[in-house]
């Protein structure tokens, strides 16, 4: 055969695309690999678990098999008071560990060495469960946050830790982040204050190490609503959050946020069926000026999706 232009063409296309992928995929990966995880990165990792979104442990994406974040004011083993209260991440037996624990390289070269050597992270076992926390240590005169395996260091078991925390100090952060993903909050609320005037209203932009090991990052691309990365430091009221989720117009008349009343589920905190129709009728009367006050919103159950969502916002987004 004579000259075959498609052969020359295929080689040229392959070369160009290969060079382009080399520059845009391979080179940045060197930068990403050298990033050391910050406290924010470790906290997100430990509270989210292996992966948010579809996975083996959570195929219906309902927040199953996620770690549980607890605020401890006493030692689960000895009962000693802890002041100030500390944050711990409880992995019940069988719950897959976070990427930072499974693949320590995710947290960066220094942090991973501290977590492995000082924090004894590698001794944790998914089959038996573990309790993790974040501590601060020094390497070469500089402070680093690293992961501690408290099951190995202090003998805390997941069951004891959850008992010591009680429901009041338990935060379903991993499940809440799952609700954030499935309900599509991130189509309007970004988690990315920009490196411009956003500083003034929405707070500090995230840093390189804030994302280590996170999956999915889901910081959003299309902002139709306030950035919520630091929302809990602007507004930490659980009552406000509850009302805002049930019907945003209760607290912000001009809001265009959808109502998330369906996250309350079928029954309220006392096991009674929630009468949404009655609520809507009374709300319409309120809007029409017939009632002076809007109807009370139902108290949600401890295992409802909205509880986990508010837990995530108030615990993680500071």
């Amino acid at each position: 055969m004579a000259f075959q232009q498609h052969k020359l063409g295929a080689a040229a296309i392959g070369g160009m695309l290969g060079l382009s992928m080399c520059i845009t995929l391979m080179f940045p990966s060197f930068d990403f690999r050298s990033a050391e995880s910050t406290w924010v990165g470790l906290d997100k990792n430990l509270s989210n678990g292996r992966v948010i979104g579809f996975s083996y442990e959570d195929p219906l994406v309902i927040g199953a098999n996620k770690p549980i974040t607890v605020i401890l004011d006493k030692d689960p083993k000895t009962g000693e008071k802890i002041d100030p209260p500390m944050r711990a991440y409880v992995y019940k037996p069988g719950v897959p560990f976070a990427p930072a624990v499974r693949h320590p390289a995710n947290t960066g070269p220094t942090v991973s060495q501290l977590s492995l050597n000082v924090g004894r992270m590698a001794e944790a076992s998914e089959a038996e469960g573990a309790v993790f926390a974040i501590n601060r240590g020094e390497v070469n005169g500089k402070d680093w946050d690293y992961i501690e395996n408290l099951t190995a260091l202090k003998g805390w078991t997941p069951a004891d830790t959850l008992r010591a925390a009680t429901d009041e100090n338990t935060r379903y952060v991993g499940k809440g982040k799952t609700v954030y993903i499935t309900e599509g909050c991130w189509w309007c609320h970004t988690l990315l204050p920009e490196q411009t005037q956003d500083w003034q209203i929405f707070g500090a932009p995230p840093m390189l190490g804030d994302f280590n090991g996170e999956m999915p990052t889901a910081f959003g691309s299309d902002r139709k609503a306030p950035d919520i990365l630091h929302v809990a430091s602007r507004n930490s009221s659980r009552e406000w959050m509850d009302m805002h989720f049930f019907n945003p117009r209760l607290v912000q008349p001009n809001s265009i946020m959808p109502r998330f009343d369906y996250l309350w589920g079928e029954t309220d905190a006392h096991g009674n069926k929630i009468d949404f129709d009655k609520w809507r009728t009374e709300y319409k009367e309120y809007r029409a000026g017939i009632r002076i006050y809007p109807p009370e919103i139902p108290e949600y159950a401890g295992d409802s999706e909205v509880r986990a969502l508010v837990d995530w916002i108030l615990t993680s987004l500071k």
Partner: peptide
């Protein structure tokens, strides 16, 4: 590939937008 091979962090964010 981030979802198949559990690539995480900014690598995942960047590859998603890649």
């Amino acid at each position: 590939s981030p979802e198949l091979f559990n690539l995480t962090g900014l690598t995942e964010a960047y590859m998603t937008f890649w």
